[in-house]
């Protein structure tokens, strides 16, 4: 157990598609489990990061909670990895960047079709939205990037095995995809 590397994962403004793709490792997950144990992750339900070797971040930064989560990961992970299009360039959620936030919120909560009891949610428990969705490298320092929407299971495999075997991670041509 002592030799296992600790991996934490999370999804910020993402769709969990990258996590699903990770699970596509299928039987390779068993092999991986011999070397890896999971810390904070939707897979484990651990709520907060402890010291980890690798943090995998899916999704961009769209609200204040994302910022706190991202910082927690940066603080606790030796290597922080941006996983997937949204973490790398904001992706689909960032397509709201072209509409002023005021309009987005008004449409959703005040004057959109079918809105009843129009009001902007105002609960201290709710994270506030940033005016723009940002890629994670604009908020904390990122060490590696795994592009793709989602990155294929092979990408995760290649990346993690490279790291486990002490090689500088490298993605071959067929593994680099932005879609």
């Amino acid at each position: 157990m002592a030799n296992k590397i600790r991996v934490a994962t999370t999804s910020l403004a993402g769709c969990f598609g990258c996590h699903m793709s990770f699970l596509d490792l299928d039987e390779r997950l068993v092999a991986l489990a011999e070397h890896v144990e999971f810390d904070r992750s939707p897979i484990t339900d651990i709520e907060h990061c402890s010291n980890c070797d690798i943090g995998l971040i899916e999704g961009g930064v769209c609200n204040s909670e994302n910022v706190h989560t991202l910082r927690e990961f940066r603080k606790n992970c030796k290597i922080l990895v941006a996983v997937g299009a949204c973490a790398i360039n904001g992706g689909l959620p960032a397509m709201r960047n072209f509409i002023p936030l005021e309009e987005c919120l008004s449409e959703a909560y005040l004057d959109g079709i079918g809105v009843e009891n129009p009001q902007i949610p105002s609960d201290i428990e709710l994270p506030l939205l940033l005016d723009k969705v940002r890629p994670i490298h604009e908020v904390v320092k990122i060490d590696y990037y795994l592009p793709g929407c989602p990155p294929s299971a092979d990408v995760f495999w290649k990346f993690l095995t490279d790291l486990l075997e002490g090689r500088e991670p490298e993605l071959d041509y067929e593994l680099v995809h932005f879609d």
Binding site: S64, E102, L105, I124, L126, L128, L129, L130, D131
Partner: peptide, 15 residues
């Protein structure tokens, strides 16, 4: 970057 959301949600708490 939180200013618009803060104003619209009428919040100014620490969070």
């Amino acid at each position: 970057a939180l200013e618009t959301a803060r104003r619209m949600a009428n919040r100014n708490d620490a969070a």
